[in-house]
Design a protein around this nucleic acid. Sequence first.
DNA 1: ATGACGCATCGAATGCGA
Length: 259
Amino acid sequence: MKITTWNVNSLTARLQHVLDWTAANPVDVLCLQELKLTDDKFPLEALRSAGYEHCAVFGQKTYNGVALMSRHPVRDVVKNIDGFADEHSRVIAGTLDTPQGELRVVNAYFVNGQAPGTPKFEYKMSWLRGLRDYVREELARHPRLMLLGDFNIAPEDRDSWDPDGLRETIHHTTEERDHFRRLVELGLCDGFRLFEQPEKSFSWWDYRMLGYQKNRGLRIDHILVSDQLKPQVKGCAIDRTSRKWKQPSDHAPVTVEIG
DNA sequence: ATGACGCATCGAATGCGA
């Protein structure tokens, strides 16, 4: 089965792209971030017609918002981080029953953080601490787990188009990378790095200054799989095709295949 | 160059993203 994460930067603006992309790539589960809409505006019928009959949505007005869209039933849905009070809609988790057993999917839109030293960066740090505690508990309950979404962290130098010029700037700071590493140390691994990948593989490119055309991007959208799930991971790839379409999201979808 | 580009908000200029 295939599971995809995609920051769509407004589902309203990107609905046709989502429909076109899933028509060409009929993945089992699509995890979306940055819906930028309230639950009542979620285009349930259009996505049902596309085959995603089971949608769990956690939206809000204007900003943030996450959803699980699935061809198979999703149960035990949890919204946001238990024990971490948050005004933003950033996390949605659910359980899928697969032929191999149950699979817990935690879909997250990590805090951007603006710049080190700002209140938003402090919020990012405390949110990341809350997430770590939450994922630790989720892993204890659900050994077959994947944590995926827009992490807003480029974990290594090779995940940035300009690691030296951007050193210690947002997405590249030691603190953010430490948080990424500590998530991995809970018993997860970066699904993308389980396989050979092209050099300069990125998942986000700035709209400005011909960022995509120059491949000035970052790899900030990730799929972490639990150690128990790892032997079943058959592939993981970034698909840049939709980034070339008219009025694209600035993020590309990332897909993992579980066998 | 506190910029560029794109999206959302009610109606224009601003916040926010990364």
